[in-house]
Nucleic acid binder design. Structure first.
Lengths: 118, 118, 118, 118
DNA sequence: GTGGTCTAGACCACA
DNA sequence: GTGGTCTAGACCACA
């Protein structure tokens, strides 16, 4: 389900976080579904359990999963997540647009390019 | 001219690089203008000369400045830099657009938002 | 595996870069093989870890190695490196040939000498 | 006669040395002709007399000029210089050829390329 | 353990 | 004065 890319420059725990975000947002993992156990996943990927633990803590902080003590981790309600994610991306567009303007790249050129590429 | 933000998670040398990139791209520092000396800037910002050195080496590698031994560092020809930067930003827009589509954020919603905010 | 030559006028970090380039290009170090650790090599050569760090950063920038945080440095895929290197050397031949012509050294004399020596 | 290129990465004195080598080898400056005075040239190029002094010392060491105390510097006998230079270049070819072989670039490919480019 | 960043401070080449 | 290199040593994130 998850593969670590050792040539990726990002730390492993960040890769794990990002992979699960995608799996959850795309619906591969469904609302309230159980996440793989920390230990089990660590063995499967041959990485340190601390690293998985850190990734899960981050996913919980971001609201993607919730923890039930003694039972494990579960996927949060998806619809709310998507709304949050959408806002984040819109914000990134606005920030990038500002950078673009600073170096004389006009809104219209960018909008044209976005339309062309998609 | 430059301020270090100790709450910023990025390393200091990276902040310095990024600040100067902006100053150069915005034209605050002009082509062939002398950069602050390594030692002078280090004292002004109360950071170690090695850290400035590292930032300047990176700026030189990226083509933003050029070094004359025994004389100092100078700002490179700006026009070429801007063209490179423009391409980079357009690429980021395309990447971001792809992410947006994956979670069902339509082109038109994004374009509307960009137009509204700017 | 690596020896520093203190009579060499080049800085130490450059010698280290150059030695590893050779080892990688010659195949002594193979694709995905682990590089010596920064600290370990520093102790072995009795030089400062920062100096090794600088050399490794340069090797990474040039595409010879890749870094996995918390794990170490690894040798990159070799084939691409060799193609780049070949082009560089051919370019150097052309430049040198031009210099030769400027002082009246003919193509044929050079080709003869190369053939004799090799 | 001589122009300093401040974007050149080489130190100024080295640029001066290299410019005069070319002028002498190409015959622009003839055998026994007087070299420009250290002070005069320093003023003309707006650089430090120490720098010119260093360049002339290097040219003398390499046999390109000779010094007459109280009179100035003079261009050496050209024919000998050319022979020395030719040997140097041939040596560089042999060294480069060795590098080429190490990465599997054959003599014949190089000779072909040299022939094609010239 | 492993690499990345940073400080304090020295010494060198070059101008 | 100016940048470049290096040492000694600390602290941090990551595994």
């Amino acid at each position: 389900m998850i593969l670590i890319d050792y040539k990726d420059t990002r730390p492993i725990y960040e890769q794990v976080v990002s992979k699960f975000q995608t799996l959850i947002l795309k619906g591969v993992l469904e609302t309230n579904e159980k996440m793989p156990s920390v230990r089990g996943l660590a063995i499967e990927l041959s990485i340190n359990p601390n690293t998985i633990q850190k990734a899960y803590a981050e996913l919980e902080r971001q609201g993607f999963i919730y923890t039930v003590k003694g039972r494990g981790n579960y996927v949060s309600v998806k619809d709310q997540l998507i709304e949050i994610k959408k806002e984040e991306i819109l914000l990134q567009f606005v920030v990038l647009m500002k950078e673009a303007k600073d170096i004389g790249l006009s809104q219209e050129v960018i909008i044209q390019r976005i339309r062309r590429e998609n």
